[in-house]
Structures are given as structure tokens and as C-alpha cells.
């Protein structure tokens, strides 16, 4: 019944876009190559809608991850017009008309897999190294005090310290955009450091020393040179660099105290 009533959300006209997609299927291809698809899209359509349109109507072999389609599951991070973004959270109208060129029909939408991670197929990359880093920072609450009968109290002001950090969706945009990670693949990277901060600054946690040790080694937080790429690309607008800076200050304080 409802859909009988459903019309288009906007009566926007369709515009022409050229999706230029970097493709690579290791079963067939020796190296990546570009393919172009011209689509009619509305301003309010998502990049993900375009990819699905291509897969459904033109080329079923186009491969990408997707699930929730509204920016909370973190599946569809990819490089769109030069910047890591979620395909489901980027609308056609967000793309600059500057990408218009004489060689393509309409506005160009250039899509590549996330950088710095091995390509599995087309836009799918190997996320294992990324998730693996997370496991190195003890990503769980540690508090061996006997738990109270009810909840552990936490002042809302204290919770503010981790409020942004807990919104991370592990999409991988930040770490794969980080030049320090490009240079050192053992570097924990912004996402894992953010996770460390999420627990270090959680007033309910009791493993401060252990946690700092897990992030202050050669491939830890001092690799961060405050380049801010992570902040620029984070789809949840988390100020990751600020969290890492706070970690650095906490680590410094601790080392001075020890001396």
C-alpha cells in the first residue's frame, strides 16, 4: 500500500555522471585498470546507489562491500574523488562540479579502493591488518575491582572525555589515509590509537599503565606527526588527532613521573 503512495523524495532532475572505477580481479587481471560507467543520478542519490545501479543493471561482477547504507556499519569506505569516504554517506551533490572534464560525460566520480591495504577485488581491500592493530591495544574494559551491585557510576562530564571516541565505526578511512601508516605498516595507526584512548580515558577502566605500554613502543603513538589526514577523512567527524595528542601528553607525564 505504502509504496503506491511513494513518489520520489525530490522532484530533482536526473544529471549525468561518469563513474570511473579502478577495477582489479586477481583471478583475471594482471594489474588494475579503469572502467567507466555513465549513469543518470539525482543530486540526493548516494555514491553507493550509483555502485548498486551499476552492479544491478550493467555489470554484476563489480565488487564492493556494503551493508547498512547509512553510515553506521562501516563497510563501504573507499576513495572517492581522491578522498577516503563512505559511499553511503556521500551524495552526488557533494561532489564538486570541478570534476567536469572534456573527456567524460557529466561530472566525473572517480572511485578507488582504500589506499595502503591490499586489494582483494575491485573496491574490496584486505581489512585484516587494520582490525589486527585494534587487537593490540587491549580493546576491552579492564576493571578487576569487584563490580558493584548496580552500574558503575560515571559523571556525564567524565564521559565527555570519550564521547567522540566511542562513535568510531572501524571503517578504515583514517588509518589507510595516514602517511605514517603508509611508511610503517606496523604502526598502530589512528584507529587503534583512538580505541586505546577510548579506554584510557574511560573513568571506569583500571589498566592505565598496561594500556600506555601497549601504545608507547616504536610503532606506537610517537609515529603520529599530527598530519590530520585521519581527522579530515573520518566520516564520524572524530577529532582523532586530538585524542592521540592527549595520549601523548599522558605518556609524557607518566614517563616524567617515573624518572
Amino acid at each position: 500500500m505504502v509504496s503506491g503512495l511513494l513518489k520520489n523524495r525530490n522532484s530533482n532532475e536526473m544529471k549525468k555522471y561518469t563513474f570511473k572505477i579502478k577495477r582489479f580481479d586477481p583471478e583475471i587481471d594482471r594489474q588494475p585498470h579503469w572502467e567507466e560507467f555513465v549513469l543518470e543520478m539525482e543530486d540526493s542519490d548516494r555514491i553507493l546507489d550509483g555502485l548498486i545501479k551499476i552492479k544491478d543493471d550493467v555489470d554484476g561482477s563489480l565488487t564492493f562491500r556494503r551493508s547498512c547504507a547509512h553510515g553506521i556499519c562501516g563497510s563501504c569506505a573507499m576513495k572517492i574523488n581522491g578522498q577516503n569516504r563512505l559511499a553511503c554517506q556521500t551524495l552526488m551533490k557533494d561532489l564538486s562540479a570541478r570534476n567536469k572534464s572534456a573527456h567524460t560525460a557529466g561530472v566525473a566520480v572517480i572511485i578507488e579502493p582504500l589506499p595502503a591495504l591490499e586489494v582483494v577485488k575491485d573496491l574490496v581491500v584486505d581489512m585484516e591488518p587494520f582490525f589486527g592493530m585494534n587487537e593490540k591495544v587491549l580493546p576491552y574494559l579492564i576493571n578487576n575491582d569487584p563490580p558493584p551491585e548496580r552500574e558503575r557510576l560515571q559523571d556525564p562530564k567524565d564521559q565527555k572525555k570519550i564521547l567522540q571516541a566511542i562513535t568510531c565505526i572501524m571503517c578504515g578511512s583514517c588509518t589507510s589515509a595516514c602517511p605514517s601508516y603508509w611508511a610503517d605498516k606496523k604502526y598502530l595507526g589512528p584507529s587503534a590509537l583512538l580505541k586505546a584512548a577510548r579506554f584510557i580515558f574511560d573513568t571506569r577502566d583500571r589498566a592505565f599503565d598496561e594500556r600506555l605500554r601497549a601504545v608507547t613502543h616504536t610503532h606506537g603513538l610517537w609515529r603520529c606527526h599530527s598530519i590530520y589526514n585521519c581527522v579530515e577523512v573520518c566520516p564520524k567527524e572524530i577529532d582523532i588527532t586530538a585524542y592521540i595528542s592527549k595520549l601523548k601528553r599522558a605518556a609524557l607525564k607518566k614517563s616524567l613521573r617515573l624518572k
Binding site: R150, E151, R152, L153, P156, Q159, F199, D202, R204
Partner: peptide, 20 residues
Amino acid sequence: TIIELEHLGVPFSRTPEGKI
């Protein structure tokens, strides 16, 4: 169930006195 989740670290929003 909720208390157990809180003890596991779930960052529930808080009342001014720090309760869930």
C-alpha cells in the same frame, strides 16, 4: 542484563548523578 552490559564497558548515557 543492563547492569552486566554496563560492567562490560558499554558507555550508556548518564544522569547528572552518574547513573544510566
